[in-house]
Design a protein around this nucleic acid. Structure first.
Lengths: 224, 224
DNA sequence: GGGCACGTTAAGGCAACGTCAAGGTCGTCC
DNA sequence: GGACGACCTTGACGTTGCCTTAACGTGCCC
């Protein structure tokens, strides 16, 4: 889950942000002044910081400057001040974005996504692991006992479809059209051949597969 | 010098931007419609794109979507529309920032700096090492047994793409887009020729490469 | 016991890969 | 201005590896 640190001392805004962000799947931590914000960032680095410039203990820009001494974490600045000098100052101090109050929550969320996209693009893909092998969807890689498993393009495509839908039953038609194209819906031969390949490469005991399961007459299922 | 591509069809704004940006040390190129913007980005990739949403030939968001099919270049969107839906739409389409007209030039410049700052500064670029050779991304330099390895520009670009994504599988299309441009997605010949060059210069045993690996039918992978 | 669906294996053809070398283009140096 | 060198492009060739296809074995159910 994506961790976001919200630095603000306005209880109402804080509450609204916390609820909204949580509702959109972010993990939210909170700091109400500059000192604790810096501390929190150092101890458990968040993926992004939302920083209000109006803090009780120190100037927001100063927080930013200190932060930038050792952290590259993306920072989105909130401020009540519309003046362009303030914006310039904050952005040059190291802010990645600047948004003025009052703001729409959907715009805030969109800007947040834009900032996070830059950072966490490739690694956002999950790594699915079983007790026998590991599938890294981002790196496009399969490991077994620490060793790389060589898969052919077709083997990989088929495994990918199954792994992206863990525990879910994938029909033969689904698999065939995803891997070979919709025209191949009758070639169930392919499935048997390639499923055998995958099992030989990935299952400890081919005779009794534990992760690549057959649902006779219907399709296949991946069990993590 | 930092190259900025400005995409806008308003002559006055274009002129103002060109003058201001040049005065601040940027190299400015201009496109007046979506088509030529995409072409320009492909041919001579700028460090940043300033994109006006109101273009004569196609919707700005469509330009953005096409661009994001093959380029990661930071994009700052200009728009006359203040509605939060427009902002959300553009940001989610891949924009990195969104600023509404009229805007202060100093704010624009500040946001521009903020976006460009993210572009890795050479001092913090990683040095990637294998047991056979070392790649210094900041210094733009490759060493092997303490000796400098001479790489041609194309060889370097290709190696850079791979090294920046260690262990990750890079598809042939990705590599071709990044190095030769998106129009060359079919020229897999190039990949074979240049991969052979790189291996000859970097791999101890060309016949059994240990760091520049082929994934037959898909792409290549750098293994540190 | 026959039919059906699935698992397994092996062989053939062909596309993809690695390799080499011959133009072609551009800039540089004499 | 011409010769040279560096680099990119393009084509050809042998080899590897993948996809396809078919044949056979096994377990299950009617």
């Amino acid at each position: 889950m994506t961790a976001v640190l919200v630095v603000d001392d306005d209880p109402h805004l804080l509450r609204a942000l916390r609820i909204t962000l949580r509702a959109h799947g972010y993990e939210v931590t909170v700091a109400e002044d500059g000192q604790s914000a810096l501390l929190a960032t150092a101890r458990t680095p968040p993926a992004l910081v939302i920083l209000d410039l109006g803090l009780p203990d120190m100037d927001g820009t100063a927080v930013l400057a200190k932060l930038r001494g050792w952290s590259q974490v993306p920072v989105l600045v909130l401020s009540a001040r519309h003046g362009s000098e303030d914006k310039v100052q904050a952005l040059d101090a190291g802010a990645d974005d600047y948004i003025t109050k009052p703001f729409g929550l959907d715009e805030l969320l969109a800007r947040l996504r834009a900032l996070l996209r830059r950072r966490a693009d490739p690694d956002h893909e999950p790594v699915v692991a079983t007790d026998a092998f590991t599938v890294d969807l981002g790196k496009h890689r399969v490991t077994r006992d620490g060793e790389d498993v060589r898969l052919t393009p077709t083997e990989w495509k088929m495994l990918e479809v199954l792994v992206r839908n863990p525990e879910k039953l994938i029909t033969q038609q689904q698999l065939l059209s995803e891997v070979w194209g919709p025209a191949y819906a009758k070639e169930t031969n392919y499935l048997r051949v390639y499923m055998a390949q995958l099992r030989r490469k990935l299952e400890p005991d081919t005779a009794t597969p534990r992760h690549l399961l057959t649902e006779a007459g219907i399709g296949y299922r991946f069990q993590p």
